[in-house]
Simulated assay, not measured.
Amino acid sequence: MVALRSASSAGRIILAAAILALAGARTAESQQTTGGLMVEPVGVVFARGQTSAVLHIENQTGRDVAFQVRPYSWSQAGGVDQLTVTDELAVSPPIGHIRTGTKQVVRLVLRRPAEEQEAAYRILLDQVPPPRQPGTVNFAFRFSIPVFAEPAATAHAAPRVSWSLQPAGGEYYLVAVNRGTRHDEFSDIALTAADGRAIAIDESGSPYVLPGATRRWRILSKGFSPSGQTLRVTAHAESGPVDQPLAGP
C-alpha cells in the first residue's frame, strides 16, 4: 500500500487502492508489459545537468487505449512509501489516446535540479478504462515508474546502508538505514543463523531504500528471538553484494 499526499492538503492521506504494477521492477530491465501495454524504460535516471527524458508507451492490446500520466515526489517517511503531488517534474502529454499497434512518447522535464542528495519521484501511468458496458468487466492497469535525479552538489552520489535487527510491537524487523546521498535497491534478501538455518522475512513491497530513509522487513519465523544468536544478512544490491553479520538489539 502506498500513501498519496495532496500538495494542497498535506495532512490528508489517501491510500491508493490500486496495485502499483511496477513497484518492484528492477531498473536494469528495459521494458515491462501489462495487458498488452508496454512501457520503456521502467526506471529513469536524470544525470547531473540533465533536465529531460522520455518514456515510450506501446499499445498492443488490440484496442485504442486512453491514458493519464501523473508525477509525484517520492519519500519513505517512517519506512512507508509516500507519494506527494509535485510540480518539480512535468509530464507531456498528461493525458492522451494511443491507437492499437502504435506508440506514444511521454516527455519528462525536471524543473528543479536536486541539490545535496538524489531526488526521487514516481510516475503513475494509468490506463483510463472505457465506459462500462452491460455484462462486461473493465480492467485498468497502472504502471508505477521510479525516477531519480542525481544531485548537482555532489561529485559522486552513493548509498551508505547499514543493517540491524529491531523489535517493535512484539515482533522483530530487519532494518536498513541509508545515510548516503543515493538510493539503493535490494533483492534476494536472506537472514541466516550460524547453523545455516534460514530466518523467513517478508520481502513484499518496494525494494528501494531512498537516501536518508529507512526500510523495514518483518521477520516471519514464529518464535524468533535474536538473543544469543549470531546472524548474517545477505542480499543482492544495485551497489554491490551484501554479506555482513548482525548483532541482536
Rank of each mutant, 00 (worst) to 15 (best):
166 Q>M: 14
155 A>D: 13
187 S>K: 12
37 L>Y: 09
130 P>H: 11
191 L>Y: 13
79 G>Y: 04
209 V>W: 09
180 G>S: 02
230 T>M: 07
57 I>S: 01
45 V>C: 02
17 A>K: 04
155 A>W: 06
114 A>Y: 02
92 S>H: 01
33 T>C: 03
221 S>P: 02
77 A>F: 06
203 E>G: 01
95 I>F: 06
22 L>Y: 04
127 Q>E: 15
33 T>P: 00
156 H>I: 12
213 A>K: 11
77 A>M: 09
53 A>H: 00
95 I>M: 08
99 R>P: 00
224 F>Q: 14
1 M>L: 02
218 R>I: 03
52 S>L: 00
61 T>Q: 02
115 E>K: 06
81 D>P: 05
212 G>D: 02
8 S>K: 12
35 G>S: 13
36 G>Q: 04
246 L>V: 02
188 D>C: 08
70 R>E: 09
58 E>Y: 07
212 G>P: 01
239 S>Y: 08
180 G>D: 08
173 Y>A: 09
141 F>P: 01
227 S>V: 03
207 P>D: 09
74 W>P: 01
236 H>G: 10
137 V>W: 05
47 A>R: 14
29 E>A: 03
208 Y>H: 11
176 A>D: 04
186 F>A: 09
81 D>E: 15
120 A>H: 15
176 A>Y: 02
243 D>S: 12
37 L>R: 14
27 T>P: 00
123 I>E: 06
89 L>H: 07
157 A>S: 12
101 G>V: 07
74 W>S: 11
99 R>I: 11
51 T>F: 01
26 R>V: 02
150 E>D: 10
15 L>A: 05
98 I>G: 01
93 P>F: 04
199 I>N: 15
7 A>R: 15
184 D>I: 05
56 H>Q: 03
59 N>K: 03
78 G>P: 03
207 P>T: 11
70 R>P: 00
24 G>K: 10
132 R>D: 03
45 V>G: 01
98 I>T: 05
135 G>F: 13
208 Y>L: 12
208 Y>S: 10
248 G>L: 06
249 P>L: 04
